[in-house]
Computed example of a mutant assay.
Amino acid sequence: MSRIAYVNGRFVPKADAMVHIEDRGYQLADAVYEVWALFDGKLADPEGHFARLERSLAELSIDMPMSRAALTVVLKEAVRRNRIREGLVYLQISRGVARRDHAFPTEPVAPAVVVTVSRVDRAATEARAAKGVAVVTTPENRWGRCDIKTVGLLPNALAKQKAREAGAVEAWFVDELGLVTEGASSNAWIVDGDGVLRTRDTQANILRGVTRLTLLDVAREAGLKVEERPFTLEEALAAKEAFITGAGSLVLPVVAVDGKTIGGGSPGPVAMELRRLYIERAKATAV
């Protein structure tokens, strides 16, 4: 069965899906996106993702193309047409199509909307989590508004390529103070030497991860001591555990950074338990 995409009001075979060459998302990265994990055909963390989407659009003065209810219908219909139960749903909204100019269009244009759905092999992702993954570090070189989930991801793409060439899964950005900000497509966490669960606070220049937000709640409910406080690369290397979070990775243990082993070199109990609890919560609240 051919994959189906939603493009500006129409469901079409993905092979035939197109956007205009003067779409501002294509030419100027003037667009935002969201990614939902899909469990049993349902969207995980729905409220968090819609709230972040609406905030990102507002920060760029892009109108919501339709109501949240109508957009939910579109997303669910894309899932249904693709017949995917376990996977990821990708949504992209650009300012729209207009004659190329850095400034916004003088005459308002309709936002452009694209939705695609992809399958995830849950057995493979569980096997990866059970083994743990490696990350590499790279200097922080992104713009000052990483809190907005835009499609301007070239530094992230270059960081991911660096990770791939090193045989790693993710790259962590490290700022001029030696502090880990976040991953190229995930938030970064450690369990420090005192057993405290730590992740960077959102007042810093990081993405307000939806999985991150849910996991903070899950961790506190589990009785863990949690601090939204930055950590250095040295603290990460000395940590008992490390892991990353995101809609694609969920909660994924990190067992090596820049070739140096973290903890005992295998996924730690805190990360694995949080992964279990997060998935349990995500399935229970998915829509």
Rank of each mutant, 00 (worst) to 15 (best):
R99T: 12
R68F: 01
E140M: 14
V79D: 10
P65H: 00
A44M: 01
R119F: 07
D45M: 09
L153K: 13
N82K: 10
R52K: 10
T72Q: 14
I84H: 05
V151H: 09
V113D: 07
I148Q: 12
S61A: 15
P155E: 00
D63M: 14
R68H: 11
L158S: 10
S61H: 08
L57H: 08
V97M: 05
D121K: 11
R142N: 05
A123C: 07
G48T: 03
Q161Y: 09
V135M: 04
V135D: 12
I93N: 10
G48S: 03
A69C: 05
L153I: 02
V73D: 14
L154Q: 10
R80H: 05
A163E: 09
K149A: 07
P105E: 01
L91A: 08
L57W: 11
V79K: 05
T125F: 01
V136I: 12
G152W: 06
R142S: 07
T150H: 13
S67E: 12
A70I: 03
A130T: 06
N82V: 12
E107D: 15
L154F: 10
Q161N: 15
S94D: 05
E54V: 09
S118E: 13
K162R: 06
R83K: 14
G132A: 04
N141P: 02
D121G: 03
V120W: 04
A112R: 13
T125S: 14
V113C: 15
G96H: 01
V117G: 05
S118C: 00
K131N: 09
E86S: 11
P46G: 07
P46F: 02
V89T: 08
A69Y: 08
K149W: 00
C146H: 09
A58C: 10
L75N: 02
I62W: 03
L91W: 03
M64E: 07
G96K: 00
G167I: 01
E140V: 03
A134L: 04
V113Y: 02
A70K: 02
S56Y: 01
R85D: 08
D121Y: 11
S94K: 10
D63T: 03
K149E: 03
V135E: 08
L60C: 12
A127E: 14
L71R: 01
T106A: 15
V73Q: 15
G96F: 00
V97K: 12
K131R: 15
